[in-house]
């Protein structure tokens, strides 16, 4: 039993051996947390559905290095995101900022809910006005 737990412990902790960075980038846990937050918000453009935190593409490697450098230099999170957006465009952020170009991305879901809701409301209202006596067969024929 003891061996089983040990084996489990080894397997679970060994996962960290696959992490992209060899160790913590910063000794200061607060800085490390910021670093991990930022790298998990930034898209790796070579492998578009990965964050640069998860990717071992060398571009992701380069960007992590630049982010570490900027954090060390005392840049704010906003300044770091700015640095990336200026060079790679809005697409580099997994949560793109609200701007003229990305407005539709932010508004579309709410717009669809409202439009869909209105349509559903109208359909249900129409059904309510229908006589109740028609059976399912005639319903299908009408549908």
């Amino acid at each position: 039993m003891k061996r089983g737990w040990l084996a489990l412990f080894v397997v679970v902790t060994a996962v960290s051996a696959y992490a992209i960075d060899a160790g913590n980038a910063f000794d200061d846990p607060q800085m490390q947390a910021r670093y991990e937050k930022i790298t998990s918000e930034v898209r790796c453009l070579v492998c578009q559905n990965q964050t640069i935190k998860d990717s071992n593409a060398f571009l992701a490697d380069d960007l992590r290095r630049e982010i570490r450098r900027m954090l060390t230099e005392g840049k704010t999170d906003a300044e770091i995101y700015d640095f990336l957006v200026v060079r790679y465009g809005d697409f580099v952020l997994y949560r793109p900022r609200m701007s003229g170009k990305t407005l539709v991305l932010w508004i579309a879901p709410f717009l669809l809910i409202v439009v869909g809701g209105l349509v559903a409301f109208k359909v249900v209202r129409g059904r309510m006005a229908m006589p109740i006596d028609d059976d399912s067969d005639s319903n299908q024929a009408a549908g």
Binding site: D62, E66, R87, Y88
Partner: peptide, 13 residues
């Protein structure tokens, strides 16, 4: 060599 200028130019491939 280290891709620093590449980043400034937004190079990704």
């Amino acid at each position: 060599e280290d891709g620093r200028v590449g980043i400034d130019w937004g190079v990704y491939g």
